[in-house]
Design a protein around this nucleic acid. Sequence first.
DNA 1: TTCCTTGTTCAAGGTTTATTGAACTATTGA
DNA 2: TCAATAGTTCAATAAACCTTGAACAAGGAA
Lengths: 123, 123
Amino acid sequence: MARPLRHPTRDEIELPLVLDCLSDPIRLAIVYQLAQHQRDGTELCCGDFNELSGKSNLAYHFTKLRDAGLMQTRIVGTNRLMKLRREDLDARFPGLIDAVIKSAARDAGRLSLVAECEIADTD
Amino acid sequence: MARPLRHPTRDEIELPLVLDCLSDPIRLAIVYQLAQHQRDGTELCCGDFNELSGKSNLAYHFTKLRDAGLMQTRIVGTNRLMKLRREDLDARFPGLIDAVIKSAARDAGRLSLVAECEIADTD
DNA sequence: TTCCTTGTTCAAGGTTTATTGAACTATTGA
DNA sequence: TCAATAGTTCAATAAACCTTGAACAAGGAA
């Protein structure tokens, strides 16, 4: 399981692939949650998204997000810690991720960006 | 041919559908060209995109763009005049279209946003 | 009217996608 | 060593997607 994961370099990140990733509701929710937790420096692991779908389906979406250059994954023990590649994305496509995250936040009601229980406790 | 075309209202425009539209290279090129010509108030007709693909394939993409709320089409004689729904999009998703257009412009080389001949005469 | 132009619609095709469950690997902890 | 945990990979399936060409509809010009 310690196979090195391939990530595209900054320059290899392609706009259509990024937009395609963001156009899927589950992937948008993943990116949204990564963006939220990025602000306090937290990395998330696969299990943190279990409310969004089944494990194998999530693994499929994680691969797409990693291949498109949206997120970085590092392996720590039996966990995968993931974070948004914000600096790279901002450098390649200034303002894009920001606009998407903010637009998603405004439409949070229709988009189901988080699990039901997480919506409940908005303390 | 004078059937009224259905356009979603501003509020009905959905983020995932918009991003999905923009993730296809042909549709991104259409939106890009609409955005360029919008600045001088020009509307474009279907034929203006003939270099991008065949007519029936373009009609398919036009329908998707219209259904997603990205562009408005009005019928004038035997032509369809199309424009970007910039105000509606900016109201729903501030900064998004701008970031996408600018990112596309930067990557113009890889994206083939215009026909070969148009790239040639950059006068 | 007749033809030409503009553009849509339809059916068919091949491709890619998202989703599932079962089987598997690797690490941790008892 | 053994079991539990975290996550991947594989095969299968149904749905959606993009593309093509042929047939169609409507307006403008001769």
